[in-house]
């Protein structure tokens, strides 16, 4: 009886370790490969521990393209999107939550429709539009379509609606103007939601590959994911160790942030996914 209980427990732990392995091994393998030599990548069966740890692979990967440029582009694009979203989302969500005005339902419906339109559906017409405006291959082409975020407006509106009416009345009796009520009373109360939404936005756009791929044609505006993807066709055949080194540069910072702020990030995604 007792032994079978222990056996079951052991089996359970073993199963969990296998689950961890399924998700961790690829990343471990990426790390291992990134410090191998070329010849060590083309042996079978594969070697797990390279003879010498070749950190120069990272430098080599970094030098295959203008990675600093890509990095700056990614940063500029992502941060601009976040700042712009902050300025469009908060007032819109507030108005939808707190005011009744002509066509408010229609405008909100329009927002909800936007929520359901993926970029994969509109890239072609938007591309044509940008090309006629001469905006192709610029940061603006990567930023403008995401200057507002329907999903965030929807979520933030829910949060604003939950603020008790009495609080607003108290503020009105305190002679606060409408703007003051919004920025001094409501926004601070919605801060956790806003941070969650921005975190979500950051990860989405930092990782985004599709949109910059479509809208950029030169390194002047390419972002990191697009730049990294070019490692698949480095001259002179595939160099797995260089490719993995390049991806390590992209993946490791995010993984570190993830394991530090795991609870918050998971909550952000689950929260935005469930509601």
């Amino acid at each position: 009886m007792k032994t079978s209980r222990y056996a079951l427990k052991g089996l359970n732990v073993l199963g969990l370790l296998i689950v961890i392995a399924i998700f961790a091994t690829p990343f471990v393998w990426m790390a291992v490969t990134s410090v191998k030599s070329l010849s060590e990548t083309i042996t079978f069966p594969p070697v797990w521990i390279p003879e010498t740890i070749r950190f120069e692979n990272f430098a080599l990967a970094w030098d295959t393209g203008p990675f600093f440029r890509y990095f700056v582009n990614s940063l500029v694009v992502t941060l601009s999107i976040l700042v712009l979203q902050l300025f469009t989302i908060v007032p819109a969500a507030y108005a939808f939550a707190r005011y009744r005005f002509f066509a408010d339902r229609a405008l909100f419906a329009l927002t909800m429709i936007t929520l359901m339109i993926p970029t994969q559906l509109i890239f072609l017409p938007v591309y044509l539009q940008f090309s006629s405006w001469g905006l192709l291959d610029t940061h603006l082409a990567l930023i403008l379509p995401f200057a507002a975020n329907a999903f965030a407006i929807f979520m933030l509106r829910q949060t604003f609606k939950q603020v008790p009416e009495e609080l607003l009345e108290a503020a009105r009796l305190d002679q606060a103007s409408e703007w003051k009520i919004m920025y001094m009373v409501m926004v601070p109360m919605a801060k956790p939601t806003i941070i969650t939404l921005l975190l979500f936005s950051f990860i989405t756009h930092w990782n985004d590959y599709f949109w910059p791929l479509v809208m950029t044609t030169t390194d002047a505006s390419r972002t990191l994911p697009v730049g990294i993807s070019a490692l698949t066709n480095v001259e002179g055949g595939v160099a797995w160790h260089i490719m993995m080194a390049g991806n390590m540069i992209l993946v490791v910072p995010i993984l570190i942030i993830f394991f530090i702020a795991q609870r918050h990030i998971i909550r952000a995604f689950v929260y935005t996914g469930v509601k």
Binding site: E166, L167, E169, L173, D174, P188, M189, K191
Partner: peptide, 24 residues
Amino acid sequence: MVFQNYALYPTMTVKGNIEFGLKN
């Protein structure tokens, strides 16, 4: 006005709550 549910500004300190109307 004093409300049934107090309607205090949760993001401000006690001092901030008392001060808000004066600032305005």
